[in-house]
Structure formats: structure tokens, C-alpha cells
Amino acid sequence: MDQPDRDGRTVADGRSGRRPASSRPGRPAATGGAGTAVADRPRSGWRQRIRTTLDLIRANPTGRVTLKIFVAVAGALVVTVGIALIPLPGPGWLIVIAGLAIWAVEFHWARRLLGFTRRHVHNWTRWVTSRSLPVRFVLGSVGLVFVATVVWLSLKYSLGIDLVARLLHYLATN
């Protein structure tokens, strides 16, 4: 039974259905010395090794299902830890994005969402860096106030610790 692979191409009998790089549409075959196609040479690099390993795993129907389950569980664990860390100071959102990147290995929706996130973070960063120093200072201050408010509310409602009340009590006794 034919099934689409992760890139939307039809896969029959467990094969990946991918064409060599030189015959893919829109990609001319680059040639190296002595007329050999560069795409036919084995590439070195960790990305190519990972891609090759994943293609080998996907070539087997059991491996394909196992890989999907592993990626789904690993991504869910990382995203869950990241979401738990969002209210705390630290890399909560970065961990959520890392979990999304893990899901993007196997799931098209995650690849699209990751691309959307990268685009908007890049556009935001470019916009902020093009502003004057006072505007960046105000944006940074608003960000710090937001993070402080989230930390205060998280501690107050999840652990029952009211930092503002404690600080006011401390200042009143001293």
C-alpha cells in the first residue's frame, strides 16, 4: 500500500521514494573533478549522518512507527518541561522551541510551526534592534516587569508565597 512520506512523496514497499539530489526539480547537478556529480559523493557532517540514519529507520515499517512514537514522546517530554519552566526565570521558551524542533523531525505541522516561530522571532529581533536606545530600554523594562509579574503570580498562587507582602513586611519591621 502506498503511503506519503514525511515530505509528501509516495512511498511504496518501505522505500523512501526520494530521488537523488541531482534529479530533484530545481536543483542542478553540480559536478566535481573528473565529471563526478558532487551529489553522488558521500557527504560528511553530522546533519547528513542523522538524515541517513533517519532514512534507514524509516525504510522499515516497524522502524517508521517506532521513530514516530519515540519522537512524539521525546518532544512531548521536552515541551512539558519547557511549559513548566515558562513562569520561572530561565530558558522556558527556548526549551519549548527545542521540543518543537524534536517534533519537527517527524511531524509536518511542527515543522511549519517552527518555521513560523523562527520567522517571527527573527522579525521581532530585527525590529527591536532597529529602534533607538531609549525605545529598547523601555521595551526591556516592560519585559522585565512582565517576567517579574509572572514570577510573583506563579509563586503566590502555586506555592502560596507572596513576595510583595513579605517585602512590605520586611521593610515595615526595619
Rank of each mutant, 00 (worst) to 15 (best):
L94A: 12
R9Q: 07
P4V: 12
A29M: 00
F70E: 09
D55T: 03
S22W: 14
A30E: 15
L159S: 04
S23I: 04
R112W: 13
H120K: 08
N174H: 12
S130I: 04
A30T: 07
L167R: 03
H169W: 09
T149G: 13
A104F: 01
V128S: 10
G99H: 06
L54K: 02
L159W: 12
D40S: 01
L153W: 11
G8V: 06
L139Y: 06
A101K: 00
R112L: 13
V96A: 11
P20T: 00
P87Q: 02
G143E: 09
G26P: 11
W46S: 04
A76C: 09
E106I: 00
V128C: 04
K156P: 00
V135H: 06
S22R: 09
N123L: 15
N174Q: 10
P134T: 07
L114N: 05
G160C: 09
A29Y: 10
L100W: 06
A101S: 13
L94N: 13
G26Y: 06
P28Q: 15
D13E: 15
G14Q: 08
T125M: 13
I161G: 03
A110Y: 10
I83M: 11
L168N: 11
V78D: 12
T117K: 10
L133D: 13
L56S: 04
P20V: 02
A37I: 14
D40T: 03
S23M: 12
V11L: 09
G160Q: 09
L88Q: 07
A72G: 10
D55S: 08
R51I: 05
V135S: 10
S44R: 15
L153T: 08
V96Y: 14
W103V: 02
